[in-house]
Design a protein around this nucleic acid. Sequence first.
DNA 1: TCGTAACAATGAAACGATTCAAAGATCCGC
DNA 2: GCGGATCTTTGAATCGTTTCATTGTTACGA
Lengths: 337, 337
Amino acid sequence: MNRSASIKDVANHASVAVGTVSNVLNYPDRVSQRTKDRVLKAIDELGFVRNDAARQLRAGHSRTIGLIVLDVGNPFFTAVVRAAEDAAALHGSAVLLGDSGHDAAREANYIDLFQEQRVQGLLISPVGDVTERLDLLRERGVPTVLVDRLADEAKFSSVAVDDDAGGYLAARHLLDTGRRRLAFVGGPTSIRQVADRLQGARRAVKEEADATLEVLESEGQTVLAGRSVGNSLVERGREGLPDGIFCANDLLALGVMQSLTMTHTFRIPEDVALIGYDDIDFAVSAVVPLSSIRQPTEALGRTAIQLLAEEVGSRNPTHRSVVFTPELVVRQSTKAN
Amino acid sequence: MNRSASIKDVANHASVAVGTVSNVLNYPDRVSQRTKDRVLKAIDELGFVRNDAARQLRAGHSRTIGLIVLDVGNPFFTAVVRAAEDAAALHGSAVLLGDSGHDAAREANYIDLFQEQRVQGLLISPVGDVTERLDLLRERGVPTVLVDRLADEAKFSSVAVDDDAGGYLAARHLLDTGRRRLAFVGGPTSIRQVADRLQGARRAVKEEADATLEVLESEGQTVLAGRSVGNSLVERGREGLPDGIFCANDLLALGVMQSLTMTHTFRIPEDVALIGYDDIDFAVSAVVPLSSIRQPTEALGRTAIQLLAEEVGSRNPTHRSVVFTPELVVRQSTKAN
DNA sequence: TCGTAACAATGAAACGATTCAAAGATCCGC
DNA sequence: GCGGATCTTTGAATCGTTTCATTGTTACGA
């Protein structure tokens, strides 16, 4: 299990200089066909594989970019990961992935690790207060792009989705299909995303003089939390029921849907329209296919890499904040009466 | 924006030899307290960060292991990823993640990339026929552990879950709760996992003289495919209906559940019991909480890293295949009558 | 045949860490 | 004060690649 062949071994085997082998690999045009053939044959016979560590050492930086997400299990982030991987591949680099799991300590670990790896740049959806660490990185010339969080444009670029606009879209759609007694389900409102979506919904409701918006705070963002809110709605009976419900995410919406349909007292969308947020895979296959707000995750990931690429090249980088607008996906759960 | 400080800069700044700085970092005990303090101060002042490329070059190998999964979006794999990351962190190494997306070309790309990175070992859930590439790796002393696929033990270690046992468990549970006319929903049977689960179910059914098993092949493994199978069952009416249904995964089961409950003609579990496979997050929050078969993903990932760690050390590694037994999770959808 | 482009090939130096034999300090007992 | 043991520190050599100034080769028109 002797150590693997180096460029020197290849050079000896092909009776050329090491520089020539390097040229074959990096600048094939500079090498004559005959030598190229000999070298390639030698490479093949020895099973030579480039040692990336040595390349990096010489180059001063790696060909990887770091990506730190809050949770690989979250469909939003897996989509971003995939897009980032694809986009990076186009630039000829690879993605180092770290999952902070909402844990500031793990996040810090990954930042340090990636710094030792001399990543070309960093994509991060931050948990803790990492501005200090990121400032250090920036001073060293490692650009950072914040994902799903707006940033001080003097310092960082960022990509995010406009949750206020998403909330507006959802509520506006309910209003446009004739609903007037709206309810917002979500919580805790200390979560920025929740607060922004609610704010957007409020904005839409204000546009209609006769429309009202009731806020039903949920315990978390799960199906079960949604079901418990749904149950309390069912208890109100037909009188007190809103005619349009906007949930801060699809899981909540599915929970609410279960409560309302299970009892067979209310029909969706005839008695009450229901719209969620995120457009998860399950939305389309719910009992009543769920209308939702789709976030352009693919574009988000791609753009993040692109912003990073712009900064990696330049000496005096300018920063940009790109905000994406979410998209309304209409399905049966909000069909007009 | 000047290039970052090297160990030499630190040595100058602290007026010691480079070897001493290295010792401070790697063998603190060899260094006197006074020098240690001076060096650490210099490191701090210069903001020195180790260059991992140089370390690797010297060491001949990296401190990373490669992990190639079929799909980061799949909860099974995200669980494995998390477990692997945690386990690797304990060994002081990091995980390089690649998503092959069921694409043999991307898979091959990642293998090559990881080889250039000189990963210490490789965890892979293979798509294409990679035995050749993996053989090459093995000859170079890079051990590989196959995930979720059994391997020739002469060559590789592997970790997998016993799908036959899972199928048996599911069917046995239906039988134990008094059901006798069973149906298996899944397809295409060319997928190994589907075939194995069916085989296990058959084994269980054979144990009861008066039990029967009907196979309903589905078009894929989605909620919609399940719903279409469910609809055809509803059409049969109460007579032809099985009294216990085992679906090859939870998505199918949820689809079947939707069909059966939507029409309000059949009740779960009174008229028909339903059990799925994988125990996805949604199983517990289905309209009728779904019984399922849980795969020990966490143990799987942890063990995979451990097997790898065993081989990384040894000169003449022995291979092991670890097969995990899945676990029955009973919920309301299979409650006894 | 000569001069000169244009093209190919060479190999030493550099990247930044670790290693290790050797040199230098320090301490202790007598 | 001395010999010897122990503890610290030193710095050149090394890992495998890329770079680039230099040298060698070829081709072609005059």
